[in-house]
Amino acid sequence: MNVTLRVWRQANASSEGRMVTYQVQDVSPDMSFLEMLDLLNEDLTVKGEEPVAFDHDCREGICGMCGVVINGTAHGRGNSPVPTTTCQLHMRSFEDGAVIDVEPWRAGPFPVIKDLVVDRGAFDRIIQAGGYVSVNTGAAPDAHANAVGKLKADRAFDAATCIGCGACVAACPNSSGMLFTAAKITHLAMLPQGQPERKLRIKNMIAQHDSEGFGGCTNIGECAEVCPKQIPFDTISQLNRDLIASLFSRDGK
C-alpha cells in the first residue's frame, strides 16, 4: 500500500516548524507505524535529506519512549481498534492511499527538541518531588511483613502500569499531567509501604506538577481514552481525595 504523510518538521526548539508532505510507497500492512517511518527515513537518507527525528526504543509498547499524534489523536488511538502505543499501531489500521497527519506531543511543559521529539523531563521532576517510598537499600523488612489485600494490590497495580509516555498530556485540552501524577499517587496510596509519606507526597507532587506549567484537570477524560496502559480515570479522583485529606492533616507540610 501507499500512504501520504504530512509530518511536522522542526529543526530545533527555537525554530519554527511546519507540516511537510511525503509519499511513502510499498508499505506493508504488517508494518508497525514506526517501521513505516523507518521506511520513509531510509528513503530520505538515500536522497541525502535529513530523516525525520522521532523517539522510540523498545518497540513493544512498554518503555514509553515513543509517542506521536496521528490524525489528531495521541498514539493514533483514533485509528486503532485497541489502546496502543505508537510502536504497536500497525499499518493495517490505515487504508491504501490514506493521508496521515503526524505531529509531536504539544504542551508547554513538553518543548519540541526536533521534529517529533519532545522533552518530557517534567515527568521525572514530578517523580523526584515525592513519587517514591523513602527506603534505603538494605533497610527493608521481610517481604511478608505487610500483607496487602487483593483488591488494593490490584488497584495499585492498575495504576503502576503507567509507562510515562505523556499521551495523557498530549490529548488533554488543558495540557494537564494529572493522569500521570494520579497514577503514581494511587499506586503508592494503595500500599501499606506508601502510607507514611502519603500526605506529604501528594502536596509536593502537585506543587511540582503545577510549577512545571501543566494545566489543571477539568475531568474531560481524553487522557484515559488515549492511555495505552488504560490507567483508570478514577485515579484522578483518588488524587483529589488524598489532596483534600492532606489539607486537613498534620502529616503534611
Binding site: V133, V135, A140, A143, V148, A153, F157, A160, Q193
Partner: peptide, 13 residues
C-alpha cells in the same frame, strides 16, 4: 524481594 516490596513494587498477591 524484600527491598522491592518495601519500595512499593506491586508483585502478584
Amino acid at each position: 524481594i524484600d527491598q522491592c516490596v518495601a519500595q512499593g513494587v506491586p508483585f502478584a498477591r
